[in-house]
Design a protein around this nucleic acid. Structure first.
Length: 679
DNA sequence: CGTCAGCGGGTTTTT
DNA sequence: CCCGCTGACG
């Protein structure tokens, strides 16, 4: 045992890290500053539990916010311990954990285990439909933005009713009514959204103590990553699960809490009661100059745990700050310096990032990158390779959404939102008018839409009245639609006698509905056509990959599971095959940069109104904006540039802007103010 | 069923 | 100013 304490794998840890790894029991708070080796600590801690305390992997639960974090941790653990052990850990996002629980237990709450998952857009669409239906006698719809905001805030708090302002205004009452109906509707559709994935799990645990006890007994050790980002529902879940063994270890950094506007509660990490509070303050990422600047800025916040990043390294370069006349000049000045870094300091493009507060600021930068002229292996070339994070993603594309809607309808015919999306796609003569008639019957009788369609298809006398009102064309369309769905419900059904690959069925399905032609009919340009079709094929490829993965894991693949995995892991759509490791400059928001690091960072548009964002000042307050600035600064390893423009177009108008107030919080001796034009 | 004009809105985003 | 959505019209 004593020999094991000096196990090779933990010998690289510093004393604070080691303490964090070895404090296994009870409530533990690990305050992990930016770049302090948080992932290392978490993975070593889990490895330590497994190999040193012989905790079975099934008894460990580690929850993260992103799939990326979960899979990175799993890989790193697998390199520390027997990979068989690593495989049996429950290490996943909050959402996929709840998905797993609900797939097994949701029938207690009146859903079926084939429930489908809605994303925000799906919910929004549904809310719009419902609002239109509720107010069909009114002239025009009120703006749904405030309603959606209220509903989303309530969901984040795990509240199933709106009690905003005692429902004083008409709009409040309307929102409350809509929220109530929305939940009824989701239930009827057998659909769950991202937020209710969490709140339903809590509800399940609260209403069925026997279920809770099972999970409490199983998970002796619970760890939560990025604890500063937990919202009340996640907090509740952690409390429920850890209430038996009380071995709850939370890891995070209050200074990096930047998701308050999405319901995250910084108070959770500020007020976490624990006998052991461990601070990781030694930074392995940035130069002391950069760290001093970051510390100086964040010191101005009141709501925080006291801590300060430090490093043994050489002080490093000063932070360069420049003020350009306008945004285009700022962008080209950034690109000029970037070329210098690449050519003189040999910094690869992928080690360079430009970070900005909001996506709208990326335009001028892209233009400057495209127009840039530089020397590649002695040749003059035009254009620096770059990638912008967070554009319109593949999964948002209509051809994919339509295809997914088809698969949702096949696996859960109660999902009327999905059904209505594809009922006339490709066109099969079911017009809006026809649909109106059918949905009216569906609403009046409370018979699910798909059952009405089935009834019509087999001429069930119950629907004679409705049937008479429909055209022959509509009849034919409905009949073929119902047959199509029934056929593929069987083909995609799990564990039929002849095990058939899902992607084979999908290919056959695409052929049968002639989706390629449907896309071709819909789109003018050839380029767009092939692009869309490629996206569809990519989707088939995803399904095939999924099936392979499942077979490797000895789990049986299913359409339902594929759909939820797909919805819960959007990375598979973006960074799977393409370019992730390519040598490209990175453009992204401060928010998306969290967790990443680059040798050189350019922080662009550091102007008051942009950072701190004036709208955000009113909502989440100046401290969250300061944390955002802190996150941005701490992304840089060696070179940090800060810049702003004196004039910038704002809402169409040219306007003057002032330097960000946060710049004045950085000690002058860390900054070198340089002319924007490079000599 | 598809196209176009007029209108509102414009911060951050993962699951 | 530029975008996306809605609703009216062909």
């Amino acid at each position: 045992m004593i020999m094991h304490r000096q196990m090779a794998h933990s010998s690289t840890l510093n004393p604070a890290q080691r303490k964090a790894v070895e404090t296994t029991d009870g409530r533990v708070l690990i305050l992990a500053g930016a770049g302090s080796g948080k992932t290392s600590v978490l993975t070593h801690r889990i490895a330590h539990l497994l190999s040193h305390h012989q905790v079975p992997p099934q008894a460990i639960l580690a929850l993260t916010f992103t799939n990326k974090a979960a899979s990175e941790m799993r890989h790193r653990i697998a390199s520390l311990v027997d990979s068989k052990l690593a495989r049996h850990l429950t290490l996943c996002t909050f959402h996929s954990f709840c998905m797993q629980v609900l797939r097994k237990e949701i029938e207690r709450l009146g859903y079926t285990s084939a429930f489908t998952l809605y994303d925000e857009k799906d919910v929004k669409r549904l809310v719009q439909h419902m609002a239109r239906h509720m107010l069909e006698h009114e002239g025009s719809l009120p703006s749904l933005e405030p309603t959606l905001a209220k509903i989303s805030a309530a969901k984040n708090r795990g509240e199933s009713v709106l009690t905003v302002g005692e429902l004083a205004t008409w709009h409040d009452r309307f929102s409350a009514e809509l929220y109530e109906r929305l939940q009824g509707c989701m239930r009827a559709y057998n659909a769950v959204d991202f937020d209710s994935l969490l709140s339903l799990t809590n509800q399940l645990f609260e209403e069925f103590p026997d279920v809770l006890t099972r999970y409490q007994n199983r998970y002796q050790y619970i760890m939560i990553d990025e604890y500063q980002d937990t919202n009340p529902t996640q907090y509740r879940l952690a409390s429920l699960l850890s209430a038996k063994h009380h071995n709850l270890c939370v890891v995070g950094d209050d200074d990096q809490s930047i998701y308050g506007w999405r319901g995250a509660e910084i108070q959770h990490i500020l007020q976490f009661e624990a006998p052991s509070i461990i601070k990781l303050e030694q930074n392995y990422r940035s130069t002391p100059t950069i760290l001093h600047a970051a510390n100086a800025v964040i010191r101005h916040n009141k709501e925080r745990h006291d801590k300060e990043l430090w490093s043994h390294a050489e002080p490093g370069e000063l932070i360069e700050l420049f003020h350009a006349p306008n945004d285009a000049d700022e962008a080209s000045a950034i690109v000029q310096r970037m070329i210098k870094l690449h050519e003189r300091e040999r910094i690869p493009w992928k080690e360079i990032a430009v970070l900005y507060r909001s996506n709208a600021l990326s335009r001028p930068l892209e233009i400057a990158l495209i127009e840039a002229v530089w020397q590649k292996e002695g040749q003059w070339v035009r254009g620096i390779p770059y990638q912008v994070f967070g554009g319109t993603e593949l999964y948002e594309r209509s051809e994919i959404k339509d295809l997914i809607a088809y698969l949702k309808t096949i696996s859960n015919p109660l999902d009327e939102e999905a059904l209505l999306r594809i009922i006339n796609l490709p066109r099969r003569g079911i017009s809006d008018q026809t649909l109106d008639l059918i949905t009216k019957t569906n609403r009046q009788t409370n018979i699910p839409l798909f059952s009405v369609l089935e009834g019509l298809a087999k001429a069930d006398p119950q629907f004679d009245h409705l049937s008479q009102q429909l055209s022959n064309r509509a009849h034919a369309g409905i009949k073929s639609f119902v047959q199509l769905l029934q056929k593929y419900q069987t083909l995609f059904a799990p564990s039929t006698s002849s095990p058939r690959a899902l992607h084979t069925s999908l290919k056959e399905f695409l052929q049968e509905i002639d989706y390629e032609k449907a896309i071709a009919d819909d789109v003018k340009s050839d380029k767009m056509r092939s692009f869309k079709w490629e996206n569809v094929l990519h989707c088939v490829e995803n399904l095939r990959n999924y099936e392979e993965e499942m077979l490797e894991k000895d789990t049986s693949p299913s359409l339902v599971d594929f759909l939820s995995t797909t919805m819960l892991d959007r990375d598979q759509w973006t960074h799977r095959d393409q370019s992730f490791r390519e040598d490209q400059v990175n453009l992204m928001t401060f928010h998306s940069a969290k967790g990443l690091e680059f040798t050189a960072c350019f922080l662009a548009g550091l102007e008051d109104h942009i950072i701190p964002h004036e709208k955000s000042l009113l909502e989440t307050g100046v401290e969250e904006e300061r944390r955002l600035m802190y996150v941005a600064i701490t992304r840089a390893k060696r070179f940090l540039y800060m810049s702003m423009a004196r004039h910038r177009k704002r809402m169409g108008q040219e306007a003057e802007s002032a330097p960000s107030r946060f710049l004045f919080e950085i000690p002058k001796d860390l900054i070198k103010i340089v002319p924007w034009k490079i000599a």
